[in-house]
């Protein structure tokens, strides 16, 4: 059992939780994730370690409520416990002194890109960051990202804040304006965003790392459910990744695999919402 020691709403439907799990905190590195299972009937879902504190023995998770499990997690409060937090899983990000790098975070992807940007900056890189969200109210961690970036560009799809438009536009401009300067790019966000970031950077030849969010169960390489095709062959995201070269990923396959359980996910979510409403009614 793992106790929640802090909880904060970052934006509507996006919650930050600090969870006590000393053995994960001890070894966590940027780019790694945990598998979370809320309770006995719960499913196992992957969540990136957005930050960790070895001394306190805690990890920070940022969760976007998109379905049953994440929504249920959002209802947990400080002092509540989570049945399983296993990790840190996956390969850590390869942090080195590359020179100038770009870190792109889209939506809830801002959270996982943060520790990477911070580690890259600490390693002596010049970090240019681009973060984006659909709308101003969904944007979070702007100050945190600013603190670990030499330059920060903020965009919103609807233009309610910062630059209007998608993250790919300022990214292309940076690549065009500073030819040869940018050594590497990291991009984390919705699969579609990562696909288009990869498309954008490929003509410039700047190596682009993405962190893939496939469906997982065990997270230890035992089921193969997380597999993607990257670099020609099948790879298990949980043990071979989660980071891959964005140019090598078969995005259409990844996107179709992500859709596979849609009808059942919908069913579970709706049933849970009905149950959750009942509870609220009776306590009201």
């Amino acid at each position: 059992m793992y106790r929640i020691v802090e909880k904060q709403e970052l934006a509507p439907g996006i919650k930050q939780m600090v969870v006590e799990t000393p053995h994960v905190a001890r070894r966590a590195r940027p780019g790694q994730f945990v598998i979370v299972r809320l309770d006995a009937p719960g499913e196992r879902i992957p969540l990136t370690i957005a930050d960790h504190d070895t001394a306190q023995g805690t990890v920070t998770l940022v969760v976007q409520e998109v379905g049953k499990t994440t929504a249920q997690m959002g209802t947990l409060e400080v002092g509540d416990t989570i049945a399983t937090v296993a990790g840190p899983l996956g390969h850590p990000t390869e942090i080195a002194a590359y020179g100038t790098v770009v870190c792109v975070g889209g939506g809830v992807g801002i959270a996982p890109v943060f520790p990477i940007a911070r580690a890259l900056q600490t390693a002596g890189n010049r970090v240019l960051s681009i973060i984006g969200a659909r709308s101003r109210n969904l944007l979070f961690w702007e100050e945190r990202m600013a603190a670990v970036s030499n330059e920060l560009i903020v965009c919103t799809d609807d233009g309610s804040y910062g630059r209007p438009g998608l993250v790919t536009e300022p990214l292309r401009e940076l690549l065009e304006a500073r030819p040869g300067e940018i050594a590497r790019i990291w991009a984390i966000g919705p699969a579609v965003m990562m696909k288009f970031v990869s498309r954008t950077t490929e003509p410039f030849g700047v190596p682009t790392t993405v962190s893939l969010n496939t469906v997982m169960i065990d997270g230890t390489g035992m089921c193969g459910g997380c597999r993607v095709v990257a670099g020609g062959g099948a790879q298990f995201v949980c043990v071979d990744g989660p980071e891959f070269s964005g140019w090598q990923v078969d995005w259409d396959l990844l996107l179709s695999r992500l859709q596979y359980y849609r009808p059942q996910e919908q069913e579970a979510f709706e049933q849970w919402q009905r149950g959750a409403c009942r509870v609220e009614e009776t306590t009201a």
Binding site: P41, E43, R44, K68
Partner: peptide, 17 residues
């Protein structure tokens, strides 16, 4: 694993599809 460990055969009582 879905069926046994995660009890998907009892979905949606258990969450794993």
């Amino acid at each position: 694993t879905r069926s046994n460990l995660m009890k998907a055969y009892r979905f949606p009582e258990y969450d794993t599809p």
